[in-house]
Write a protein that binds this DNA or RNA. Structure first.
Lengths: 244, 244
DNA sequence: ATTCGAATAATTGTTGACATATTGCAGATT
DNA sequence: AATCTGCAATATGTCAACAATTATTCGAAT
């Protein structure tokens, strides 16, 4: 009977950890902003104890920085740090793709093909708006990482780096970019996986992510709204939605 | 004046986090053992509040697993997980080595040479005992990762994966292995970095770590004391040193 | 008027106590 | 004798209050 509501974490610290992490990656808690314990405890209707535990867990995930006697602040990613993350992601997703190519079964390849077909429909149907990149791209990468069979790699990429990238995307107010080209590259990657060509699959995935990185960087150069985001006025705005 | 004692963390949660992490990677808290809050709070002479914050931070670092209403347990690495970590490490240290080769200055190369010379002395002086591998190998890898200039990569490799590997080494009661061969490989790597041959440096580093992994795995096959470590009787022994 | 300093307010760090869930044990029943 | 049930003990989850440090504001002196 009570299995119908598994969403609510049984402990308050876990629950507020999820809510805080979501608030951070969605930008409701802007990068660089202070994490005010009394305010958040009132906002979430809990005591400061579980809240502090959740913040400490966020610190372990590197989503906030805590200075003694000064409180926690949401991390703020600058351009250099985004490059660092993309370098790591390029290397690790290349690894994941190589592993996936080496051990992918026929059913796995079929699932990849179906995913690509679904994305193609979405590209054709959504005229111009291109819902594709935001969810579809992640689905594709997630599936390949899952196929790699390396659980820790999956947690690292999809659990930690993913949140950091989401945080950066919300900073740069990114829109989908180069979806058609990305779609072609996805097909190439699946071809390599189907042929069990592990080396080629790794190379193509690394190049695919390098392309995405360059697209992001050139957009950062043309769109100067982000980049030197931290310590600017926009980081000091009050957190919205404080009434609930 | 007060700069002489930076060791003592100003907050209890940070301090006990360091002590707990050290206790875990040193094996004083064996893998799979329960993290008993009342006992540890008495042992460290603090309240349960900061202790729980430290445990939550350890959870964020993936060094303990917390089940609601059941407490925290030290993670236990089996053979598959060790392989997973080595796969990630191979990829990331290859990346670090490539980056280091691309941007290493003449002084950096000199520092690498000096480090290798120091290691050579230690190999020659320590007759058979071979103090080398344990500290020297880490020094070498640390320096290269630092030369990569990627701060997040440094934190990831030297901060998180390093602790996991230490934990696994203490599980397998590892001794130094194949130090002479490793020393040769270190020289090859530095040669590539000096020549600014980034691709070769990456390849050599990845192969170097693959060799280390294979050495560990073959030793695991011959020495059956580890491997299926978790849930065995040895994980249920009481934590030693409970009197202080 | 500006700057320095002290008092005040707010926030963080820490503790002990209370509520709740789990574990282990003892005794009764089949 | 074995199993099930209920109670006791232990551990975890949560909260409110206290202590200590930091930020702020108000006032005084140059």
């Amino acid at each position: 009977m009570e299995s119908g509501a598994p969403l609510k974490s049984s402990t308050l610290a876990d629950s507020v950890f999820d809510r805080l992490r979501t608030a951070i990656v969605k930008g409701e808690l802007p990068p660089g902003s202070k994490v005010n314990e009394p305010q958040l405890s009132k906002q979430y209707g809990i005591s400061r104890g579980p809240l502090r535990e959740a913040i400490r867990r966020l610190e372990g995930c590197k989503l906030v920085e805590i200075k003694p006697n000064a409180g926690a602040k949401v991390i703020s990613l600058n351009r250099e740090q985004a490059i660092e993350i993309y370098e790591i992601r390029e290397s690790l997703e290349g690894l994941a793709c190589r592993l996936a190519a080496a051990k992918a079964s026929a059913d796995d390849c079929l699932a990849l093909r179906e995913l690509l077909a679904k994305h193609e429909q979405q590209i054709e149907s959504a005229d111009g708006r291109l819902y594709y990149q935001k969810e579809g791209d992640l689905d594709f990468h997630y599936l390949i990482i899952q196929l790699s069979g390396n659980t820790r790699l999956f947690n690292l990429l999809c659990g930690e780096l993913y949140h950091l990238l989401r945080l950066y995307r919300v900073q740069t107010s990114s829109e989908p970019s180069r979806p058609v080209q990305a779609f072609k590259e996805h097909h190439q990657i699946v071809d390599a996986i189907e042929n069990q060509d592990a080396e080629l699959a790794e190379l193509l995935m690394k190049r695919h992510i390098a392309h995405a990185r360059h697209a992001l960087m050139t957009r950062l150069d043309t769109d100067p709204v982000s980049g030197k985001y931290q310590d600017s006025a926009i980081t000091r705005i009050k957190v919205a939605g404080g009434e609930v």
